[in-house]
Design a binder for these strands. Structure first.
Lengths: 133, 133
DNA sequence: ATAATTGCAAATGCTTTGCTTGTGA
DNA sequence: TCACAAGCAAAGCATTTGCAATTAT
């Protein structure tokens, strides 16, 4: 049983055949696929799954705190499994490749900034766009 | 002549009656309107302007480096005039209100991060989502 | 003069939804 | 069993585009 399946169990998300397949594909994905790409991968395992189910599942998993949704430039939402460790993203403007990184100093400064403005930080989004040197 | 009109002149962007109106409205906007809101404001000055023109103009201004486009959560793109001084945004999750802020330390760290990963920083997006304390 | 811009409506692309049939706990 | 999920196609929403008429330089 893969990671996402386990999370579904622990969060009380009902598991169907389709959801298991989507869970498996996302669990082993090391990139950040959009729904089309995910649908393509899932279809190779079960060609009868509809894209509506993929959309519904991905939304369900997101609402359950299992997947993270990213709206990077490009119009299509991209997903990744939520991991214990928080990270941000650097997007290669030429290839679309995504590199994950962690920077504690930036994290702390964000909290400080929000605090100074009289806000409690709920969430944040940091994306760097760059090109290979 | 407002700020945006001046920028159009200096960048060689042709000015039409419609573009002048859109320029004026954006120039005096202190918030970050989406296209619908902008269209509404523009329509009060000239009710014959079509929303297609607003979309086209906003895109043209963005490509000319006159307006900045933001894809905050919520599905609709929001725009603001590009000012000399760079800033990031804190979005009030309850009201949708946007507070601008500047933090040089974060800026520097971003460059450092990209650099360490072997990238030249082209652009970045930092959004904080918070609620009033 | 004439290449570019507008307005309109139709088209697009991603995502959601209504409805009927199928299915997991 | 039976509330919930899947499949399909149609609908939604923000945004873009083709085309004929209009306009800025």
């Amino acid at each position: 049983m893969d990671n996402i399946e386990k999370k579904c169990k622990s969060k009380g998300v009902k598991l169907t055949e389709q959801r298991k397949i989507i869970a498996k594909v996302m669990s082993k994905s090391r990139d950040h696929p959009d729904v089309d790409e995910l649908y393509k991968r899932v279809s190779e395992i079960d060609s009868k799954i509809s894209i509506a189910t993929v959309y519904r599942t991905v939304k369900l998993f997101e609402e359950s705190g299992i997947l993270a949704k990213h709206d990077f430039k490009g119009g299509k939402a991209r997903y990744e499994e939520i991991s214990e460790s928080h990270h941000d993203h650097l997007i290669d403007v030429n290839t679309g490749e995504i590199i994950e990184f962690v920077n504690e100093d930036i994290e702390k400064l964000q909290k400080t900034v929000a605090d100074k403005l009289g806000y409690q930080l709920i969430d944040h989004k940091l994306e760097l766009y760059g090109k290979k040197k």
